[in-house]
Design a protein around this nucleic acid. Sequence first.
DNA 1: TTGTACGCGTTATCAC
DNA 2: GTGATAACGCGTACAA
Lengths: 346, 346
Amino acid sequence: MRHKKNVTFNDIAKYTHFSKTTISRYFNNPDSLTLENQEIIAKALVDLDYKENKVARILANGKTEFIGIIIPNLFFHYYSEMLDQILATYETFGYKFLVFIGNGQEVTERNYIKELLAYKIEGLIILSHTIPSRELSELGIPIVTIEREDRYVCSVNTDNYMGGYQAASLLARHRCDVIIHINYIKATVHSEIPAYGRIEGFLDCCKEHSIRHEMILKEMDDTYESTSRYLSDVLENIAGKYQGLKKGLFVSNDTHANVLVNLLVRRHGKLPDDFLLVGFDNSPISREAVIPISTVGQQVDKIASEAVSLLVEQMNERKKRRPIPLEAPIHKVIPPILFRRETTER
Amino acid sequence: MRHKKNVTFNDIAKYTHFSKTTISRYFNNPDSLTLENQEIIAKALVDLDYKENKVARILANGKTEFIGIIIPNLFFHYYSEMLDQILATYETFGYKFLVFIGNGQEVTERNYIKELLAYKIEGLIILSHTIPSRELSELGIPIVTIEREDRYVCSVNTDNYMGGYQAASLLARHRCDVIIHINYIKATVHSEIPAYGRIEGFLDCCKEHSIRHEMILKEMDDTYESTSRYLSDVLENIAGKYQGLKKGLFVSNDTHANVLVNLLVRRHGKLPDDFLLVGFDNSPISREAVIPISTVGQQVDKIASEAVSLLVEQMNERKKRRPIPLEAPIHKVIPPILFRRETTER
DNA sequence: TTGTACGCGTTATCAC
DNA sequence: GTGATAACGCGTACAA
């Protein structure tokens, strides 16, 4: 970068006998040049093999076109699909993305934010749960969160309540005698988190239709093996407790739903008729399971594009001469989609 | 950014009665200041709430600490896990990542590269298959590719040959009468692509040990449903053709292997004893399948860290006063790991 | 329509 | 150990 000095506006200016300003205008406001001169410059760019330098441009006009992202991981399909969809908005808005994987520790995630701010990102999308929204709101840049605590910042979330309600209602329509919601609750999960709505929706549906139901809430650790063992016990209990009854299970994610399907199929060679299942997320496993699993799907593409456009609106507002800041954070809610597959439709 | 003018070295300089130069030194070479003065400046930073501006720093010294990534998608778990591991190297090397999802079209991917170059990335990691390595090599920046055609650039790949060999050999050790490799070949796939090694490894193992074998190669389109239908036919054929024989199937990816397992389990209530299966990738589905699937796993974490450190080496070399460019591209190969699960061990 | 002069916030090169 | 000054490459009043 020091040795091979790049071609600059100055070089082009000399080559074409224009001024730097005119070259700059060629890029930012070409119509202000005569067609003739546009062509002269265009030719010079080719001749000199000019490559634009957006860093210099940033320093001059303050617009990085950077958006920062902090996302917990990419192992969960939900997150990687979301990131995929967010990055795809480059085609629409032209913003570039600086991505960090949050590790759940406040100190390091705060550092990521500091680094992002040092690079003058114009906006920030947060999926990580670590930093409280209160603190995020004080960063002084537009922020949108997705599926996390969002009291003080803008957000886009799935309508989890509707999801829970739909799941319960589907199981009820299939005349289950009892419907059971299996959810994992981490210590940090409480009503502030959008996913909590699934529980409320489930419960409300049960109550409104007077359906016999049970909630099985337990904090699970993250290893697949221990989860499997736990769910095996749960299944044993349910089978014993509700013998002879038609049981509808609403499981808070597809991976766990799949574990249950596998346990049942391995024991009975097929999915027993007295077990219905609904998962959550419409992740690939729900479709690829030995018995394809009914599930409540999040509209990840919509959530992603809503999130970015919500952010872009705020970023544009800030560029105006007299920006009007939001009075209160905007919270967008995207309805889920129910996928009916074999675990309920037989 | 225009309104709220940020605190700069100039402000700090005035506040502390030092020069800009000294402030700069405080950040880049603090030992050259007296401890006393360091503290004075440190205090000023807090008092003025200084936030560093790396954009200005880039313009001045040319070091962006940006690495560009172009990756085909994040729907395949392999890619999202790889991206996760690559991004995680921030902790080790401090490089920031600008990520683009390649859409398979040369024009747009070329545009992504142009954009990345405009932001003065110091290196580029390519997982997308679109742009020929020849063209990449002419970009004038360090490049590392992962699992793609790599003749003219550095790369890190799994030892696909070993993977194919191991899979065949595992099936052979289990005394299969015939082993069958099911692979999907896109029009573009040929011996230039690392994954082709799986086929060679499989074939060599079969030949060396005189094992009866068959290759089923077919270009498949990407929808899960059509793939399932195709694999169902394949299974039918195999079952008929090799009736009474112990059949070992080596499937080129876990998703397809899982389809086969599901078909077999749904038909027979369990995995028949005359069918053994090995998949590829050690993706979650292989562990979460109704019958956990033996598979050849890629060491994604190692590939990712090797890729970044290979890149970092080249980037560091370029920063020297007299950089010695590589004579020939370096190709690193990471051995796979065989996971034995129920589809072979019963 | 085009040009001049300066600013953006930092680092590098000399001096002292 | 510290300071003055010139880059770095582009944008933008303001002037012509």
